[in-house]
Structure formats: structure tokens, C-alpha cells
């Protein structure tokens, strides 16, 4: 299918669809505007999202609501320690046809969906985690020497609980890096809790209508890629990324003190793609430095590896990124 060229209409359509989807989600989700924006930004930028938060904050509900608001094939995988990779990716099974011939046939796992909810991903063993992370990266599953492409759009929303350490397998840094954004789901305020009470403790049913189909999502993802980025914005994103490296000239004092490893090139890609979504939402055809800053925290926070001092001091990667954003000047010459 031929994708439309970037035009005022395509930008308007993007904004319209985005707002439509967000409005639909907001019917059920109270608050979390920023979180929903981050999740949808990652969705239209073609990236996967890791939602981290204590139990009961609505992480799973957000994902489920998104699936209901879109005509996307949705599957949910509850990660447990005994979950095997084949349970996710699928496996070759022996089947017998009408004539009695037995053949192996690939039985796709729950990962073969447009929207996959990897609930409590850190409860599975690293082997199982690797299976889904490989699929996320490759956009396909290899079984019995055959690669099976995943349906497009393919989007994984993983959740994890940061407080329970027993019986969990924290995701290795290399695998966390594959997530486009890491969204911190924080407790809501009083007003939001009152609204949650109203919405969930009555017999009122909130109907979520699907507003987008897969094709619309793909079109929107294509529109995002058409947004252009000027040299100075690219340099700003690059400097921001380099600023997370302790030995970089752009590094801040906090970076030098508390960071062990900085952000990989995936980080700068994430900044630009996230910035493009933000630019479209602002009705622009080009990315601004402000767009980069808007996506910097969710894009970089899980890619910055703290050193021992940083962990001992309890310094969050968010504060490191924030100090970098505040201190780094935009290219002006």
C-alpha cells in the first residue's frame, strides 16, 4: 500500500487519530496523561514500552484499554518462573492429516499479535525473557529453522514490579535497552483516586470503542518517519546522549559521579523518533529541541547504568537525565 506523503492533511490526520485514541483511553484510565502520551508516542514511533510500577496502579488496565480502543490483535502473556520460551513464541507440533500423514506444523505462540502485553516480565527466567526480547528486536520468530514474521504493527507492552525482588529475574541492561521507552507508573493523587472510585465501584459500564485499526497505526507510524530533523536538533540529541557518558565533554557532574555506562546509539534513535511524534502532535513538520527534551526522560532513564556510588546513594537515573537536560545548551553556533 502506498503511504501518503507528508502534508498538512497527514499531520492533521495524525493528530486527530492520536487525540481520538487518547480520548478513548481516557474514558477508562483516570489521570496518567503523561504515561498515556509516552505509551502512545512509543506506539506510533514503532517502539516497545516497559511500564514499571508497584502493583495495582493500572499498568495492565492501560494496555488492555489500548487494545480495546484499537482493532489490533491483542494477547496477554503472564510471565511466571515456569514459563518457557516456546510458550511465548510457539512451537512445532506433530499433526496428522486425513490420510494419516504426520507432519510438523508451527503453532504460533501468544506473541503473534499486534499488541502483546508481557505482564510482570521480570518474573520469567532470563531464557524466557530472551525469547520475547529477541522477537521484539527481530520482529519475527525462528522455530525449526524457519523464521516466522510477526504481524505488523507489532508492539510489546511489558510491565514489571520494582519492589518485589524475591522470585524475580531483573532484566539485563542489554535487554532493557531494547525497550523504546520505560514508563514509570506512579501513584495517583486524591482527585484521581476519587474518580477511580466513581468509575470502578458502580455498576456503570464504560464501553471502549475501537477507533484505530492496524492500517491506521501503520500509516501514522509512516507519517512519523516522514518528519524531518534539522542539523542542530540532531546535534542536540547527540550531545544529550553523549552527556550520559561519564567521560564525555558534555557530561554533567552528576553523570561523572554516578553513571557507569551511558546511553547506546539506540537512545539517540529513540530521542529523534519520539521527538518526531511530538513534533507532529504540535503540528510541525520538523523536530525542535523542546521535542527532544520532552521524550528524554522516558527514552534515556532505562539506558543509563549507574555505578556503585549512584546505586548506594539512591540516585535515580531520572535525576541524572534531568540535570543533563538543564545544563546542556542548545547548539547556537
Amino acid at each position: 500500500m502506498v503511504q501518503p506523503e507528508l502534508s498538512p492533511q497527514s499531520v492533521e490526520d495524525f493528530r486527530h487519530n492520536y487525540l481520538l485514541l487518547k480520548t478513548e483511553i481516557s474514558k477508562r484510565i483516570v489521570g496518567y496523561d503523561d504515561n498515556i502520551d509516552q505509551v502512545l508516542t512509543a506506539m506510533f514511533a514503532g517502539g516497545h514500552v516497559l511500564l514499571e510500577g508497584v502493583p495495582g496502579l493500572g499498568k495492565t488496565l492501560i494496555v488492555r484499554t489500548i487494545s480495546e480502543a484499537t482493532h489490533l490483535a491483542f494477547s496477554r502473556i503472564q510471565f511466571t518462573p515456569d514459563l518457557m520460551p516456546a510458550d511465548i513464541t510457539g512451537t512445532n507440533i506433530l499433526v496428522e492429516d486425513d490420510r494419516g500423514n504426520r507432519t510438523f506444523r508451527f503453532q504460533p505462540g501468544p506473541i503473534f499479535a499486534n499488541l502483546v502485553l508481557a505482564d510482570e516480565i521480570n518474573r520469567a527466567t532470563p531464557k524466557t525473557q530472551s525469547a520475547i526480547l529477541e522477537a521484539m528486536q527481530e520482529q519475527g520468530v525462528t522455530a525449526g529453522g524457519t523464521t516466522h514474521p510477526l504481524p505488523l504493527p507489532f508492539w510489546v507492552l511489558a510491565t514489571q514490579n520494582p519492589i518485589e525482588m524475591e522470585g524475580t529475574y531483573p532484566l539485563p541492561e542489554a535487554q532493557v535497552d531494547r525497550f523504546f521507552f520505560k514508563v514509570d507508573v506512579l501513584p495517583q493523587g486524591e482527585d484521581q483516586l476519587v474518580q477511580i472510585i466513581d468509575r470502578t465501584t458502580t455498576d456503570d459500564q464504560i464501553e471502549i470503542q475501537p477507533v484505530l485499526d492496524a492500517q491506521a497505526v501503520l500509516t501514522m507510524q509512516h507519517t512519523v518517519r516522514q518528519v524531518m530533523v534539522a542539523e542542530f536538533v540532531k546535534r542536540y540529541a547527540a550531545r544529550l546522549t553523549l552527556g550520559t557518558h561519564p567521560d564525555s565533554p558534555f557530561a554533567t557532574a552528576a553523570t561523572r559521579q554516578f553513571v557507569r555506562f551511558g546511553v547506546s546509539p539506540r537512545g539517540v534513535q529513540t530521542l529523534i523518533l519520539g521527538g518526531k511524534v511530538k513534533a507532529l502532535l504540535a503540528g510541525r513538520y520538523t523536530v525542535s529541541c523542546e521535542d527532544i527534551r520532552a521524550v528524554a526522560r522516558p527514552a534515556l532513564r532505562h539506558r543509563v547504568i549507574r555505578n556503585f556510588e549512584g546505586e548506594a546513594e539512591g540516585v535515580s537515573t531520572d535525576s541524572v537525565v534531568s540535570s543533563l537536560i538543564e545544563s546542556l545548551a542548545e547548539p547556537a553556533a
Binding site: 524531518m228 534539522a230 513538520y285 520538523t286
Partner: peptide, 26 residues
Amino acid sequence: SEDRFTSAMQLVGHHRRERVQLIVVD
């Protein structure tokens, strides 16, 4: 104008002329 003019100035020589024109006009 949220870096519109600066981006247009730097992208004015880009090979995607249609997009550049869109950006410049904007």
C-alpha cells in the same frame, strides 16, 4: 515558532524538496 525557522534554514538544501517547501512555508 518552536525552531521552525531554524530547521527550515538548515533543511533548505535537502533533497526532499516537497517536504522542505512545506517546512519553509510553515
